[in-house]
Amino acid sequence: MLKIANLHAYYGSIEALKGIDIEIAPGVVTCLIGSNGAGKTTLLKAISGMIRRTGSIVFDERNELIGESPTRIARRSIVHVPEGRHIFPGLSVEENLEVGTIAWHGFFGRKPYETEKRSVFDLFPRLEERRGQLGWSLSGGEQQMLAIGRALMARPKLLMLDEPSMGLAPVIVSDLFRKIVEINKLGIPILLVEQNARLALEISDFAYVLDQGRVRIEGKAKDLRTDPRVQEAYLGRFAGKTQPN
């Protein structure tokens, strides 16, 4: 559903992505792994329009995203959950979720969003427990759930998650990744950027390995799990950790 060709991205005059070709298939979980500074977050920012990029990003086979503003791209229901969570600290859990609907709700609209809220609370019962609490008072894991829940309120056609495991305890992380799988099963394709390569590969269908702004390895996730290049470079550090399901 997303076809990226010859993508270059720049921070000022520094070229962070040096010609990326990626295809995100519909309905599946695709992950981007690689070491720090490889360009994973940059790629998400390039898709959501937050940095300067050239090349081609075609959405749904006919919409060229290069040249569109972040607001426009968000209206296409491509939702980017940034690393560091970035929930709204002064708004309550419930208000955070409400604000997530802006892309389709409109400033002065009166469209209902109860169904969406209901499914988020079903997915994350902890959020329902804390629905009136202000964002800043939630724990790290709860904030991550809130960030993802907020993204779900936007009725995403593509959900992009940037480092959801960052700064969270392993128990929380495994719970979180279970939920991510559930979300995908609801029919939402996911593009997952992760430092934790083992976890990422375990729940993904497809994977791309980025290094220094270029794609080094790509393929089905289960193939990359056993690929010696991947094992050596990225899986050794996380040996013996948690497993989903």
Binding site: P70, T71, A74, V79, H80, I102, A103
Partner: peptide, 9 residues
């Protein structure tokens, strides 16, 4: 949070 707000549209 300007960044998150822009990402939401």
């Amino acid at each position: 949070d300007k960044y998150a707000a822009e990402l939401l549209g």
